[in-house]
Simulated scan of single mutants.
Amino acid sequence: MNESILIVEDEQKIARVLEIELEAEGYRVSKANDGLQALELYRTGEWDLVLLDVMLPGISGIEILRRIRAADAATPVILLTAKSSVEDKVSGLDLGANDYMTKPFQIEELLARIRAALRQRLVPAEAVSAGLVDGTWLLAGDLKLNETTREVIRSGKSIELTPREFDLLSYLLKHQRQVLGREQIVEAVWGYDYYGDTNVVDVYIRYVRKKVDTGFASELIHTVRGVGYVLKEAQ
């Protein structure tokens, strides 16, 4: 494990604990304690994931998130904040955050969410060798998804997805032709916080199907009764 993580946190004790725990897990870590330093480190380094506090001196975490997403749609960002309202969480996710942790949190939960976010961004080697990846596009029939620009196109038509819908479709495309159980999907797309709550998978599959399959010549997302779902072209 050599993934690099940027910690953006102005509370020195929290930042130090995160640094120790992440380095113990094998990650390479750098820290920034204000918004300006965070942007400088982000622009001059290569990061696999960013842990971003919302309340920062100088430039807020939300503004940093906006600037990151303006140039980079792929790097996972997990927000750290003392705010706990549903509105704050939805706002952060809608701006492109991959996940959201409310302080205080358990380090085991944060580590699980980091692992899930890092897994989500990887394309399996089998997908590459099977011709399911073309440059930065993931392909399935007339459907293609670009993780860098976060574009989704089917039969030449652009499809608008929410961040979570995009992550779900991306995961299905990366593992297409594989039958994926609900627990497996929850762990990869939603992370630790949703363990045991697989109903959320069914809800979001319905959302994505409505946008990606409805009105097109063939269905790509299929239900495997009693198991889960699979994305594949019709035979």
Rank of each mutant, 00 (worst) to 15 (best):
Q12G: 09
L122R: 15
A112R: 13
G58K: 03
T148K: 07
L231W: 12
L118I: 07
G196W: 05
E126S: 11
D10K: 06
R66D: 12
V208M: 13
E165C: 11
S170E: 08
I205E: 05
N98I: 01
D34S: 02
P104Y: 05
A217Y: 11
L41Q: 02
L220E: 13
S91N: 10
L65I: 00
Q184K: 12
T198M: 14
V133E: 14
D72V: 01
V227W: 09
D142F: 12
Q12H: 14
E147W: 09
K174L: 04
R209K: 15
L132T: 03
L172F: 09
A73T: 09
D53E: 12
R66C: 10
A73N: 13
R119V: 10
E183Y: 03
E233L: 15
G141P: 15
A70S: 13
H175F: 09
Y204W: 04
L220Y: 13
D193K: 10
A38W: 00
W47R: 01
E165W: 07
K89Q: 05
E233N: 08
V203P: 00
L169D: 08
E21S: 11
V90F: 04
D202R: 10
E187S: 08
R67M: 04
E21V: 10
Y42R: 02
R182E: 12
V17L: 14
I20N: 12
S84L: 08
I114K: 00
H222Q: 02
R225I: 00
I205V: 07
E160M: 05
Q178L: 09
V128P: 04
Y195N: 09
R206C: 13
R28G: 14
A188Q: 07
L118R: 05
D167P: 10
V8Q: 13
T75G: 04
E63K: 07
Q178A: 15
E151G: 06
I153A: 06
R69M: 06
S4W: 09
E233A: 15
A73D: 13
W190V: 01
Q12A: 14
D202T: 05
I221V: 07
L79W: 01
R225G: 01
V203M: 03
N146I: 08
K83D: 08
E46K: 13
E187L: 10
V179L: 06
A71P: 00
E126M: 09
I205W: 02
Y100D: 03
L168T: 03
A74Y: 10
N33S: 11
L161Q: 02
T102S: 06
Q184T: 06
L132M: 08
V90A: 06
L118Y: 05
L95N: 08
T148N: 12
L139H: 15
V224Q: 05
G196F: 03
T148E: 10
V29M: 03
K144M: 14
S91C: 12
S170D: 01
S84M: 15
P124I: 02
L56M: 10
I7E: 11
R182K: 15
F166D: 01
T223N: 14
R67S: 02
G228R: 01
V50R: 02
D134R: 13
G61V: 03
R177N: 15
Y194K: 09
I14K: 06
I5Y: 03
Q106N: 09
V189C: 10
L111M: 11
A74F: 11
G141K: 14
Y192M: 07
A70P: 01
A97R: 00
L110E: 05
L138H: 10
A71K: 06
D72I: 01
Y27P: 04
L168W: 03
A188Y: 02
I62L: 13
V230F: 13
R225W: 03
I78F: 12
L143W: 14
